[in-house]
Amino acid sequence: MLAAVIALVGSLFFALGAALQQFEAAGTARPGLLALLRRPRWLLGGASIVTGGGLHIVALGLGPLTIVQPMGVASLLFALPIAATLHGRRPSRAELAAAGVVAAGLIGLVLLVPEHDGATHLDPAGVLTLLGVAGAAAALLWAGSFAASAAGRAALLATSSGVLYGATATLMRVLVDGAWNWWYLLALPVPALLALVMLQRAYAVGHFGVSFAALQIADPLTAVAFGALLLGEPLPTGVLPVVAAALTAAGTVALARTSPLETRPDPIRPSLTTSDHA
Rank of each mutant, 00 (worst) to 15 (best):
L141S: 03
A256Q: 06
V197P: 02
A47E: 01
G17V: 03
H277I: 14
L106Q: 03
G132A: 09
H277V: 15
V73C: 02
A225R: 00
V239Q: 11
A103S: 14
R269F: 12
A94E: 10
A119P: 07
A195P: 10
T248K: 05
T248F: 04
L229F: 08
A223G: 07
L96M: 15
A254R: 10
A169R: 02
A204S: 15
P236G: 00
L171G: 02
P114H: 01
H116E: 13
L231F: 04
A137L: 15
V210W: 01
E95V: 03
P70G: 01
S11G: 15
A223F: 08
L130V: 08
V102H: 07
L36Y: 06
V113H: 06
A228T: 02
A19Y: 00
L231M: 08
L156W: 04
R41T: 10
A179T: 12
T222M: 09
R90K: 13
A18L: 11
W182T: 14
L106G: 02
L122T: 01
F212P: 00
A125G: 11
L62D: 11
A35G: 14
A148P: 04
G27Y: 11
L194P: 08
R39Q: 13
L157Y: 03
W180M: 05
A25F: 12
A256V: 02
A195C: 10
L16E: 14
V58Q: 13
L141V: 10
T129W: 09
P267T: 11
L128H: 09
P270G: 13
G144T: 08
T222K: 05
L215Q: 12
E262F: 03
A47F: 08
L80E: 10
A119L: 03
T273A: 11
L80G: 06
L235D: 04
A254H: 05
A84K: 00
W142Y: 09
L37F: 11
A74V: 03
A245N: 04
